[in-house]
Amino acid sequence: MIRIFLTGYMGAGKTTLGKAFARKMNLSFIDLDWYIEGHFHKTVQELFLEHGEEGFRELERNMLHEVALFENVLISTGGGTPCFFDNMDFMNSCGKTVFLSVNPDVLFSRLRVAKQQRPILQGKNDEELKLFIIEALEKRMPHYLRAKYIFCADELENLNQIENSVQKMKTLLEIVES
């Protein structure tokens, strides 16, 4: 039975690498944000507005506990998931946790082109975006670093890099293909 939790900041590649890794290892892939949206039939942004951050984080924790019961699964968590409640301890207790570490400059270049899909980033100029990323990483890093594994996800820009990263993560996690 395999249960893997990917953690990391937005733009780290949790969905990109997670989907590719799950496909290669014949695991189910669950994006926790998408799972929440499917369960409540609302976007994460709508749930945030409706319940506030504290209320949303409670919903997120409940859904995390639900998906953590699944077997042979790779779960891509929201960027903030490890930073609330006992979520990191919980994930560490029931699966392999992997922090996708990405250089802030790489995150900036990824998020700069994806600003329109991420409401929290809209309206920020380049300088504001860089500062936002650096400050958020500083706050979240103590939580992220509690993952059992740290994986450099700087190189996910093309299919070859993604495939190489899948192989490296497979080696890191000592997983044998089924």
Rank of each mutant, 00 (worst) to 15 (best):
F5G: 02
F5W: 02
T7S: 13
A12T: 11
G13D: 06
K14P: 03
G18D: 02
F21K: 00
A22G: 01
R23W: 03
K24Y: 09
Y35C: 05
I36Q: 00
E37C: 08
G38K: 11
K42R: 14
Q45K: 14
Q45C: 05
L47D: 05
E50T: 12
G52S: 05
E53T: 07
E54M: 06
G55S: 10
E58D: 07
N62Y: 12
M63F: 05
A68L: 06
F70H: 13
N72E: 12
T77S: 06
G79H: 10
T81H: 02
F85T: 04
N87W: 05
M91W: 09
N92M: 12
K96G: 01
S101L: 09
V102I: 10
V102T: 11
D105W: 11
L121G: 11
G123S: 09
L129I: 13
L129S: 13
K130S: 08
K130F: 06
L131N: 14
F132P: 04
R140T: 05
Y149K: 14
Y149N: 14
A153R: 02
E155Y: 15
L156D: 00
E163A: 14
N164L: 15
V166I: 07
K168H: 12
K168S: 15
M169I: 06
V176Y: 00
V176W: 00
